[in-house]
Write a protein that binds this DNA or RNA. Structure first.
Lengths: 266, 266
DNA sequence: TTAATAATTAACAATTTGTTAATTAAAATA
DNA sequence: TATTTTAATTAACAAATTGTTAATTATTAA
C-alpha cells in the first residue's frame, strides 16, 4: 500500500525538483516574405524569397551586455507558462512586426546541450509567411538593434547567434517541402493571381524541370485541381496587370491535394 | 555603459529564475510495428499496423500512487540535461523494448497548459518503427504494469493518459504522410521483398485507388525509381515464399524521390 | 503600320494510364 | 497422372497525359 491514497494527495506531494528542469523555454520564428521587383511594365515581376532577421543589441534595457550581442538572429523570446510555443510565436510575431493572422507553422525543437551558453534552454522553431506589404510597418523591438530582410545566399555569410544557422537551414528546407506538397503558395499570393505570379512564387524555392520549362507549366497548371479560374457573373475574369494581352485570374479552392511517391511522375 | 564589460561577467550574472521555467521536459515514443498474419501457405500474409502502449502502474517503485495510474500511455520519460529529446527517445526505446538502431523520428511538441497535472511539463513526441521480430523481447519497464500491441481501431477505445490521444492521432497522421512521401516502407520490410509484401505494408496505412487496384500497382511498381530488382550473379533473384510461381525480389536503392502537388497525377 | 511581347491555344508524337485478358509454374486435388 | 487452382507476371489496347514546337491573340511601343 502506498503512502498516498488519492491522486490528489500524490499530486500535492509531487516534487518537480526531483528532476533537473530546463532553464528556459523559447520560441523562435523564421519570418519569410517574397518581395517583387518590377523589371519593366507589362512584365511579370521578379520574385525573391527573403528572411527577416534581427541584429541583437550589444546591451539590454538595463545596460547589461547582451548574450550573443551584435550577432544576427531569428526573432523570438521566452514562452509563458500559460501559453504554448505556438501561441508564443504568434504573440512574438505580433510584437516584432506588428502583423497578425498569418500562416505560422511549428517545424522543430532545438535542444542540443550547450546551444545556449546561459543554460539548458530549449527553442521551438516556427516559420511564418508574411506579405511584403505587411512587413512595411515592422519596427525594431526591445532587444533588436536592427531589423533587415536578407536573400537566402546573404544569410549564409552572416554571423548568426546560438544555433540559428541550423534552425534557418531547417526552416528553408521545410518551406521548400511545404511549397511542393501543400498549397502554402497561396500565402505568398494575392487572393486572385495569374499563372505567371504562381510560377514566380514557386520558382523562388523550387527548381524542378516542370516548373522551369514555361510551356510545360502553362499547359498543366490550368487543370490543377486546387486552383480555379475566377469568374465574374458568368464571365472569366481577366487582368492586364503584368501583360499586354489579358491573362486569366485564378484562385485557390479548398481541395487538399494528396500525393505519394508511389504514383508520382518521375 | 553596462554593469558588465564582458560576456563572461554577464553570463555569470544571468539569472535563469528571471523567467518561470518548465517543471519537466520529456520524450514520448509511439512505437509502431507491422505484424504479419499467415492466412494460408503460398498466400501473402495479412499485414496489420500495431501500436505499442504501456499501462501505467497504479503505484510507483516507492509505493506511491502514480499519476494517471491504470491508464494506457505512450512509453517515455524525462530528458536529461546532457541529451536531446531525440537522444532521450532513443535511450528510452532501448530501455522499454530492448531494441536499438531503429528508425525514430521527432514529429511534434506538446505543451498545452494543463496537459499534465503535475505542472508545466513539455513532451516531445517521436515515432519509431520496429520490426515485429525485435519487439518479441520487449519487457515491462519500471512504471509499466503491462505492455501490449494494439490495432489502431482498438486504441480509440482505450482510456489514455495525459494528452496521449492527441499525440497518437498525430503520430498516425505522420506515419501515413511519411509512408506516402518517403521510403520508410523499407523499415517495415526485410531487405529483399516481393511486390505483394510492399503492397501489404503500404495498405496498412494508405487507402488510395492506385494501391487498392492490384493490377495498377503491379504494372507501375516495377519501374519505380527507388526500388530495384535483386540479381544474383547476373540472374534475377526470385522466391517462392508467398506464391507457387516464383516472384521477383526487390530492394530499396538510395534514390530519394521528390514529389510535388504541381506535377502529380490526380 | 509594324514589330515586340506575354498569354494562350493548337497540334502531334511519345509515353503513361486504366482495364481486361492471357500466360506461367508449382501445388493441391481428383 | 491429369486437372484445377492460385499468385505472379505479361500482353494488349484504348484513353489520357506529357514533352515539345509552333501558331494565334491582343495589346503596347516604335
Amino acid at each position: 500500500m502506498g503512502k498516498y491514497n488519492t491522486e490528489e494527495e500524490a499530486l500535492q506531494n509531487y516534487d518537480s525538483k526531483k528532476y533537473r528542469t530546463p532553464d528556459g523555454y523559447t520560441s523562435d520564428i523564421a519570418i519569410f516574405t517574397i518581395i517583387s521587383e518590377d523589371m519593366a511594365p507589362y512584365k511579370p515581376p521578379n520574385k525573391i524569397l527573403k528572411l527577416m532577421l534581427i541584429q541583437r543589441a550589444q546591451t539590454n534595457a538595463e545596460g547589461e551586455l547582451n548574450i550573443e550581442g551584435g550577432k544576427w538572429a531569428l526573432p523570438g523570446g521566452f514562452i509563458n507558462e500559460n501559453e504554448t510555443a505556438y501561441e508564443a510565436a504568434v504573440r512574438e510575431l505580433q510584437e516584432e512586426t506588428g502583423v497578425e493572422g498569418l500562416k505560422i507553422k511549428h517545424f522543430g525543437t532545438y535542444d542540443k546541450p550547450g546551444r545556449d551558453k546561459r543554460g539548458w534552454i530549449i527553442s521551438n522553431a516556427h516559420y511564418a509567411i508574411v506579405q511584403e506589404s505587411k512587413l512595411a510597418k515592422r519596427k525594431a523591438a526591445d532587444d533588436a538593434a536592427k531589423v533587415e530582410l536578407f536573400d537566402l545566399h546573404e544569410v549564409e555569410k552572416l554571423k548568426l547567434a546560438f544555433d540559428h544557422e541550423d534552425i534557418i537551414n531547417d526552416a528553408i528546407w521545410n518551406i521548400k517541402k511545404d511549397m511542393a506538397l501543400t498549397t502554402i503558395a497561396k500565402d505568398f499570393l494575392p487572393k486572385e493571381f495569374v499563372l505567371s505570379e504562381l510560377r514566380g512564387v514557386l520558382s523562388t524555392v523550387l527548381d524542378e524541370p516542370w516548373l522551369k520549362i514555361e510551356s510545360q507549366f502553362y499547359r498543366k497548371a490550368p487543370s490543377l485541381p486546387f486552383i480555379d479560374k475566377v469568374t465574374l457573373n458568368g464571365e472569366l475574369k481577366k487582368t492586364n496587370k503584368y501583360s499586354k494581352k489579358e491573362a486569366q485570374l485564378y484562385q485557390f479552392n479548398d481541395y487538399q491535394p494528396f500525393v505519394s511517391i508511389y504514383n508520382a511522375n518521375y
